[in-house]
Design a protein around this nucleic acid. Structure first.
Length: 735
DNA sequence: AGCACGCCGACT
DNA sequence: GTCGGCGTGCTC
């Protein structure tokens, strides 16, 4: 008989990339790998995850503590998921304990039992519905509860009752005994009632795409691409159904803003099994239950944003990442993982197909197609016979422009109004004006905490920094020369909205950006208004470009198309073309032909030439060539080391030391290049001075080996505790 | 990251 | 005389 393991190696939720040994006292059961344990860690008690069992420890017995408790009888993290998480921790060079903590719902992180919580609520019965509360005069609490139930839609849960009366429990029992109320116990999300609704019949292309996915045997990666309106999303239910019918589970990731209730409802309509939506709006309890329900292995779909990639799915059959080019799949702080990349790795490890969908795929994915790693499923037919919109460029050099609107664009909007059609204006800049300037001395209002201008918000009557959120009242006089001749320069959505109101006084104009949709449900409400043609002209930021179709919009105007084109980020052109194509896709579905007018100072730029001909492939080919020539991803692999400090130069000086150590090590790693540490493009942000150090490599293997030697040396630098620093593997932006 | 321990300034 | 500032060291 094997000896009872006495040492348990535990990953703790602390930023220390090692395991901690604990003794297993005789009165505790032997935990599974992947089970949670409770342990004293320093002066605190914490919940950790068991990663290994051993018979002895390297540490002297005096340092070992006993485990306090074994929380789970079986692993909360299935083996395959646990292994994926360990791989992820290694790949992103982030401490395992923190990676595991990030994967667990808050309830399990804090040590709650891994059991689905039944939520109890109370509902009126048929007699209860017709009963007159006055009959319960002698039991005032019962009377009150009955009345509340009748008024508030016949059903109340524990929290609602708690608010009504401290003494509701006894009274409720009374009502149940009288047969007026019944207790409901909801455990898991039930299968939807009613038969799933069939979608439109797939066209031959869509059917062939679904067939290819369904024919995959084991791991295979697909890039499902096709112009907006080609019905990419019709392919998913067909592939999902096949998996569910075989008793498998499906994981579908969507961008953060894309997870609207409508999307969930639409998918649920088509599918006979539960669709669990995982998004930031869930309560801890809802997340807890959904996570555990997925872990049971029953056939269902998990539909979620970035973090849903870590949902346990023991019977995973298919992974889908919709809008795979979207940058919200990359976490931008702390544990900087890329959910799309992990999705591909997860599918590969679990030997299931993965589908990446996008009308404007990332260059990384296009490169994977070219190199044979992904199979391309290309949809070329626009559903319903709709035409692609006409694209026109407006050369800003040829026109005098007022409030950001060129005469040809104004004319085009006027034509739409005359015909009773809608226009959409895309401007990726909130507020009234991005600059507030003194006309007499040239002073510009800067953010005190960032290297940035303050943005004028006229409606709220204040200036705001879009990088750190600091606010001041709108300046009335120049602090330098005391002139009151202050002028807003440039335009944001607010100014354009106002200018349109002047130009078209009779038009119904609405604005969609973070300022006008902060209230919960406001975005949905506005989108519905557009859909119902309550609005003639919409002005908005990129919020508009995601996932909503407006058949009555026949004109899309792109106002400041050049933004980011010649910027510091080498992905600028890629993001620009994706954004313009996505927003163009909103125009002219079905019977109405659409037109897109792009205002630019650089009409000859290849991005616009590709847009004119709807030739994304042409752009990709040219852009990939450029990336290759420049030694940029996807032909090389980037890691960005970042640092920030409250005092100027400290972060940069720290990264200089880091670079020195790295350069010494890198001699042994061929093809790894360490650049000089530089100040970040916007050095000061929210009061912190930031610097960065770029590392590029021809292969991942050597790069990770280097980091494995390098990072511990960085941690040991005395200054490592005086600055904030982090590692960003495969950074998506460089500032 | 927390949290404790530790050694120097303005207060009941 | 103490409360508390944040430097530095550790967590099985």
């Amino acid at each position: 008989m094997p000896k009872r393991p006495t040492i348990i190696k535990v990953a703790m939720p602390v930023p220390l990339d090692r395991l901690f040994d604990y003794r297993l006292p005789a009165d505790l059961p032997i935990p599974d790998i992947g089970a949670r344990v409770s342990a004293q860690f320093g002066s605190r008690r914490m919940t950790g995850v068991v990663l290994a069992l051993a018979e002895n420890s390297e540490l002297p017995a005096s340092k070992l503590k006993n485990l306090v408790a074994v929380i789970d009888t079986t692993a909360v993290l299935p083996t395959s998921l646990l292994e994926l998480l360990r791989w992820t921790a290694g790949y992103y060079h982030y401490p395992v304990g923190e990676v595991l903590a990030a994967a667990l719902p808050a309830t399990l992180r804090s040590g709650k039992p891994a059991e689905i919580e039944t939520t109890v609520s109370w509902r009126l019965t048929e007699p209860g519905r017709g009963s007159d509360p006055q009959q319960l005069k002698r039991a005032p609490v019962q009377q009150q509860l009955l009345q509340q139930l009748q008024e508030s839609g016949e059903i109340l849960n524990r929290e609602q009752l708690e608010e009504l009366s401290a003494n509701w429990r006894n009274a409720m029992r009374g009502l149940v005994d009288k047969g007026l109320v019944e207790e409901l116990r909801e455990t898991v999300k039930p299968k939807p009632a009613g038969e799933p609704v069939g979608g439109p019949t797939l066209n031959p292309e869509q059917a062939a795409a679904a067939e290819s996915i369904n024919a995959a045997n084991g791991y295979q990666a697909f890039l499902l691409s096709g112009v907006t309106g080609s019905g990419k999303t019709e392919v998913y239910p067909a592939a999902i159904d096949r998996q569910l019918a075989a008793g498998k589970q499906v994981l579908m990731l969507v961008p953060e803003i894309g997870l609207t209730p409508q999307l969930v409802a639409r998918l649920q309509q088509r599918i006979a099994q539960p669709v669990l939506a995982l998004h930031s709006g869930l309560s801890d309890g809802q997340r807890h239950n959904a996570w555990l329900q997925a872990a049971t292995g029953e056939p269902l779909v998990v539909l979620g944003t970035r973090s849903a990639i870590f949902t346990p799915l023991p019977r995973l059959g298919l992974v889908i990442v919709d809008e795979e080019h979207d940058r919200s799949f990359k976490q931008q702080d702390g544990f900087r993982y890329h959910a799309r990349d992990i999705a591909v790795m997860r599918a590969s490890r679990e030997r299931v197909p993965v589908v990446l969908g996008s009308a404007t795929p990332s260059l990384e994915s296009m490169h994977n197609v070219a190199s044979g790693n992904y199979s391309l499923l290309d949809l070329t037919i626009r559903a319903g016979g709709a035409q692609l919109p006409r694209i026109g460029l407006i050369d800003m050099k040829q026109h005098s422009v007022h409030d950001g609107l060129s005469p040809p664009l104004v004319t085009a909007i006027g034509e739409r109004l005359d015909r009773g059609e809608q226009s959409l204006l895309f401007l990726n800049r909130r507020g009234y004006a991005p600059v507030i300037m003194c006309r007499d001395c040239g002073w510009i209002q800067h953010c005190p905490r960032c290297d940035a201008h303050m943005i004028m918000h006229r409606q709220k009557n204040l200036s705001r920094c879009h990088h750190c959120g600091s606010e001041t009242p709108l300046p009335t006089a120049c602090p330098g020369c005391e002139s009151t001749n202050l002028k807003p320069v440039g335009e944001g959505t607010e100014r354009v909205e106002q200018a349109l109101a002047k130009l078209f006084p009779a038009a119904r104009i609405d604005r969609i950006d973070r300022d006008t949709t902060a209230r919960k449900g406001a975005l949905e409400q506005k989108l519905k208004a557009i859909h119902d043609h309550q609005v003639d002209i919409v002005v908005g930021t990129q919020m508009l470009s995601k996932g909503h179709d407006f058949p009555m919009i026949t004109l899309v105007g792109v106002l400041n198309a050049d933004q980011g084109l010649y910027g510091v980020d080498f992905r600028g052109p890629e993001h620009l073309i994706q954004q313009v194509m996505q927003v163009s896709g909103r125009a002219g579905r079905a019977e109405h032909e659409g037109e897109v007018l792009i205002q630019t100072w650089h009409p000859q730029h290849p991005v616009f030439q590709a847009l004119m001909t709807h030739d994304y492939g042409q752009f990709v080919e040219a852009a990939l060539h450029e990336r290759q020539a420049a030694g940029f991803p996807p032909y090389t692999n980037f890691v960005l080391l970042r640092a920030e400090s409250t005092a100027p130069v400290k972060a940069l000086a720290f990264l200089d030391q880091v670079a020195k150590i790295g350069t010494g090590l890198a001699a042994q790693y061929k093809g790894v290049q360490i650049f000089d540490a530089i100040s970040a493009p916007m050095e000061k942000r929210a009061g912190r001075y930031r610097a960065q150090l770029l590392v590029s490599a021809n292969g991942r293997g050597l790069l990770h080996q280097l980091l494995n030697h390098w990072l511990p040396r960085i941690e040991n630098l005395p200054d490592a505790r005086k600055v904030r620093w982090s590692v960003d593997v495969d950074p998506v932006d460089m500032y």
